[in-house]
Every structure is written in C-alpha cells, then in structure tokens.
Design a protein around this nucleic acid. Structure first.
Lengths: 365, 365
DNA sequence: CTCAGCACTCCAGTCTAGTGAGTGCCAACA
DNA sequence: TGTTGGCACTCACTAGACTGGAGTGCTGAG
C-alpha cells in the first residue's frame, strides 16, 4: 500500500519500525506464542536475532509500548503483544510457514483418497484443517447461486406435497418442499417436471428464467411455485454451505470458559461465519486479529482465511479460528495449502462438468 | 419392576428407601440441583417435606452415604448426590415436570410455523430443544433404511461422473456420486435412470432389489454401480441424520474446561451420539446418569432421551445432554413433548405420503 | 548510544490464624 | 427405641503477613 519503508526514518505514526525494534517485537511475539507468558527483556536478549543488552531492550520496549505494539499486564511483568503487535508481525516479520512432512502427507493422502459428493468433501476438509492445526476450522463452500442447473425434478410425496430437487453442475443437490393448495396427480407432476427441466436446465439459481405457459393451468401453477421456491433457495444466509470442524479444539485454546462459550455461539450462527470470512477476504486480508473483525465475542481470537478460487472466481473460503496468540505462519500455511488443493479439486470437477456440457447435448432423453 | 415397597421394611440392598430417607434424599437432590453446593443437614431440615431435626437427618445421611446415594466431598462438608442418588430421584421421587406457559407456546409456535424439508425440521428442532432447556440438544432422525424410495434419478455431471439422487417417501434426499470407468452419454444415463426408477420405486434402501438385465451393457453396469452405491448409503454410521443444537450451552454447564472439551469431542462423533441414544432407549430408559452410559468423558453428564415414534415404530430420538445436576423433571418434560410433537409431524407427513401411494399409481409418467 | 548496576515494584507462593458450615458422637428425653 | 439438643471436632475457605524472584525504570560511566 504505502511506499517502501526507509529503514532509518523515524517511525511514521506506527507505520514502520526500525530494524532493531522489529527484531525485538518478533522475538517477543515468537516467544509469547510458544509460552503464553509475558516476555521479559532478558528472554528477548537470548534470541538469536537480538544482540543488544537487556537494558537497551527495555528502553526499546518502552517505545514499543508507547506506540501500541505491546502491553504490560502489570508493572514488573514482561510484555505481551497487542493486536497491533501481532498485525505487524504477520505483515512484516513472519517468515512464510511450511507444512511439516507428516502434515504434507496427510493433505495429499486426503485429497487423493477423498470421495463422495461435494458436501462430504467440504465437511471432511474442515476436519482435516482442524486436525492439521489443532484449531477450529471453517469451510464455506461455493455458493450455489452461480452453478448451472443440471437437472430439475418434482417428486410427489402426497397429493398436495412434493419435493423439488435440483442437481447443480458442481454436484450439489438442493431440495425444497412444495405445498399445493389443490391435489395434483402424478402425471401433472411429471409434466411439470419435464417442463421445468427444459426451461431451467443450464441456467443458475440466481437467475432462473421465466416460465412460458404450458397450456395446463395445474402445470403452470406448479412451475410458478417451483420458480419462487428455487429462487429463494439461492438467497444468501438461508442455506449457505458452511462446515465447522473441530469446535472442541476451542476448549483447549482458551482458559476462560466464557470465551469458549462466546466463540462457540458465533460458530453456531452460519450466517455470521460466512460474513466474517467474506469480510476478511474482501478487505484483502488473510488474517484478522482480535478487534480487527468487528465481533465483540471474538476479541481474543484471530481468524486465518484462505480463499477457494475456481476459474479465477472466488468460490468460498477456508478458515481457522484460534487465539490471537496462535502460530500464524503454520496456520496460514495450512489454510493456504488446503484452500488451494480444495480449489483444484472443485475446479477439476467443474471443469469436467463443463467440458461434458459444452457439446450442447440435451440431458433429456 | 419390584413389588410395592413396604414402608417399614429394611432397605433391601439399595433397592428401596423408607419414606423418611426418601424425603431427605429428595430434598438434597433438589437443593443441590439448584445451588450446586453440598447440602448440609440444616438445609434439609428447612425443607417442607422433612419434619425431623438436623441431628436425625445427619444420622440418616450417614446411612444414605453408606448405601451409596450420597457422598461427602470432604469431612465437614455437606452431602452431594451420587449417580445412584440421582437415579433413585428420577425413578421414584421426581414429580413429572411441566412446561411453563411460554415454553409451551414456543413449542406450539414452532411446530405450527416450521416448514421445509425433513432435514431442516430436525435441525431446527434441535435448536428448539436446546433453547427450551438451556442444554445441548441432539436429534437423531429416522434412518433412511426403511423409507420407501419414491424416485431415483441418475444425473450426468461429466462423461465419466454422475450423481445418483434418490428421493424417499419421508422427504429425505440421498445423493451419491458415481464414477464410471468408461464414458457414458446422456441417453444411456437417461435409460439407466428410467430402468432404476421402475425397479427401485417402492422398495427401501435396506433392501434394494436385484436388477434384471436391460439388454444394454452400459445401462446394466450403471445400474449395478447404482445398486451397490445406494445399498452402501443405508449402512449405519455413514450418514446418520444427526443434528446437534446449542453445543455452546455446554460451556455454561461445566466449570472444568476439560470436561467441556471432552463432551464436545463426543458430540463431534455422529456415530457415537447415535449409538449412545439408541443404547439408552433400548435399555428402556429415558435418562442415563453419569457412569450409566459407558463413556468415560461423559462421566459428569446426564443424557435425557425421548423416542421419536412413527406408526408405533422407533424412528429416531431426541436427547438432551447436561450436567448430572440438571433439572430432570424439566428436561424430561421438554424432551418428551418435543419428541412427541416431532413424531406427530413426521407421522403426518409420512401418512400423507402413504395414502397417496396406496392407490398403486405409478410415479412414472 | 549502550549497558552494567541498582533500587523499586508487584505477582505468586507459602504460611498463619480466624471463621463458619458442617459433621459425628453422646447423653437425655418422650 | 427413636429422636433430639448439645458439644467438640474437622476442614475448606479467607484474609493478612511475609518472601523470593522476575522484571522494570533510572542513572551514570564508557
């Protein structure tokens, strides 16, 4: 965003830090992430990257505290990074993380071995990510709005009730109940099914086309109902494909039980989770720390996000939810790898679907 | 089970208690549930149902402790009920609970207002139950094994991949991906779809019939694959319909964070949840307290269960998971009412489906 | 600017004593 | 014989005093 920092310029309003301050901050963040204990000047002095004495470090720490990168829980305690401190660490200091060999293997085993519908894959991916990082994980799948409809069918359950089942080209299946005011026989349903199939095939849930009259008023009323029902299914927030993996890990991450409760409560609200991840990504971030995302009850949490991208389009996200003192490099690496692999997987599926659709064959026999 | 207790008979091996001991135990359980503090003899003496002096109560408490109904956290503390104590309370003492007026209203509003597919209804029911009781709730829906198949369709996604979608008469939709070793064109898929629809319609996932040869080897191989895939879908443990509501409530129920973690971990394992509830019901219980269910990490939990019954058949269960010191009458009442209403709802849906199926109409147009 | 030295702060742990809720036992009583 | 008041005792919990140690800020010398 801003111009490259001049190393020796005085810190411009907390924008940059000179090399020594940065090294000290890095040492503090690293140690605090490991020990969860406030870090004192002598510990910092022990770090490889810092060569000055504890006394000098102390005076630097005073400055870092004044600028908001550190806080002291109380006088005569060590320092603890603030959200701003973590932010600087993530933006300027953290060396890109790497997955360990066993982790790497877990991931590749997972993606070569996993099978099942897309919902299954997403669900299990959330477990994988949680497993890799020991944090709670979240996977938000591609919204179904944009996927072309592959098949629509109306299945009667009773004379006045039916199910409309739409299969999308990404392999997702949306189904909604339909309730009729008058009784419909199976032949009418079957005709409506065929009619809908002809009209809807290839369009998306976000833009279902209008339905031309068929000449049969019952069929037309079923179709009209089907159209509104399917359009509603695409509305965000109703049935977003959200999968949460390993929420129990949260209990290990925080010692205050009310914090755990607050975070769990957030995770129960799918809509909130979706918009949280979307907001973070839209702000161009991969990490949101503490107060950076607006949620009060996530104040002691950090969120690490990686996008799912299919054909260059954003198609969901994977995320990790942990304490602000989490291992950012490792978490970012894990999210990144998993996000990327998941993207590839979905892309491969979808690519195959499109290739087969392109010859313009009609699905109807 | 056993004959009516003779009030003055000596307690037969912890089987029964005389009236006074029972009253004392009841007072202790009731108070402990309310306060979570060990209950002393003077508190018991304050209860309406107990008219003797603290000294007498103390000697009775010694007996109750010897028989395993109570424990003392330490000398000179009050008494706390054991699992056995709670068990006696639940079996012999607890007056059947009643829902409060607002709760009653919540339930009826819910069941009149809820709409959507069965999955939605079950999911929201778990939230309702959690909301009513402030405990974590679990809903296990009817297994799909026994529901007649209403419709089967194979939808092509790519030349070698397709989705088989089965709609069951209870409104559930099962879908599985199919992977072909050779490319299939849409006409073949369509023929296979029609063939499967004819054969499978009306049978259950648990007993899918064999498929007669169609004369087309591609169609036959698709059908064979479809049969094995669908049969596998009915296998228990793979995709049991389990819904957990309000897991965050657990964080409020326990003060030891590891307990919360342990219980959350259990709840993440659908298969465990299903068998837990099934075991409890099969033993003819509606409550399992502490060590009564075999799970180590649920030792400080009680499970309250109510069956879902459709046409006299067990078709799942609703359950509550809370601390052993939970308000059993209230929890049992809530589970009972919700289970009953949910049963009615499902029964109504299914009844309608069967009525419409009985005329023997063929779904195929 | 750096840093060793030093006085100071304050948490965390340990010890002490005091308090109070609660017990078990016993002798007296109905 | 069962019930009860009285009494000595136990023991968690709390508050206060004390201490050790980690850590700070400041200062003066190099």
């Amino acid at each position: 965003m801003t111009s490259e920092p001049t190393p020796h310029a005085p810190a411009r309003k907390g924008d940059e830090l000179d090399a020594r301050k940065a090294a000290i901050l890095e040492a503090i963040v690293t140690e605090y992430i490991g020990t969860a204990q406030p870090v004192g000047s002598s510990h910092v002095a022990a770090a490889q990257s810092v060569t000055v004495s504890p006394a000098t470090i102390r005076s630097e720490m005073v400055a870092l505290e004044r600028d908001g990168y550190l806080v002291q829980p109380h006088t005569s305690a060590g320092r603890v990074p603030t959200d701003k401190g973590y932010r600087f660490f993530v933006d300027h200091l953290a060396t890109p993380g790497q997955l360990g060999p066993q982790q790497r293997e877990k991931v590749s085993n997972f993606f070569t071995g996993v099978q099942g519908g897309i919902e299954d894959v997403l669900e299990r991916t959330s477990s994988l990510l949680s497993d890799l990082t020991s944090h709670a994980a979240v996977v938000v799948g591609p919204s179904h709005e944009q996927a072309p409809i592959r098949s629509v069918q109306v299945v009667g359950l009773s004379p006045t009730r039916a199910l409309i089942v739409a299969v999308l080209s990404d392999g997702a299946v949306e189904n909604r109940p339909l309730e009729f005011s008058t009784e419909m026989d199976d032949e009418t349903l079957s005709n409506a099914s065929a009619h809908l199939q002809r009209i809807f095939s290839g369009s998306t849930l976000a833009h279902v086309p209008d339905i031309p009259k068929s000449g049969n008023s019952d069929v037309d009323s079923i179709c009209a109902l089907a159209k509104t029902t399917l359009s509603a299914a695409a509305k965000p927030g109703d049935h977003e494909p959200v999968y949460v993996g390993g929420p129990s890990r949260l209990a290990g991450s925080f010692d205050a039980i009310e914090t755990v409760r607050g975070v769990l409560t957030i995770l129960e609200q799918q809509l909130v989770v979706v918009s949280l991840l979307r907001d973070v990504i839209e702000r161009g971030l991969s990490v949101a720390i503490g107060s950076e995302h607006g949620y009060e009850s996530l104040a002691s949490c950090a969120v690490v996000v990686a996008p799912i991208e299919v054909d260059g389009q954003r198609a969901g996200a994977v995320g990790l939810l942990g304490p602000t003192r989490m291992d950012y490099p490792a978490a970012m690496a894990a999210a990144d790898v998993v996000g990327r692999q998941l993207s590839e997987r979905i892309e491969a599926d979808r690519g195959a679907a499109e290739r087969s659709a392109s010859p313009g064959r009609d699905t109807r026999g």
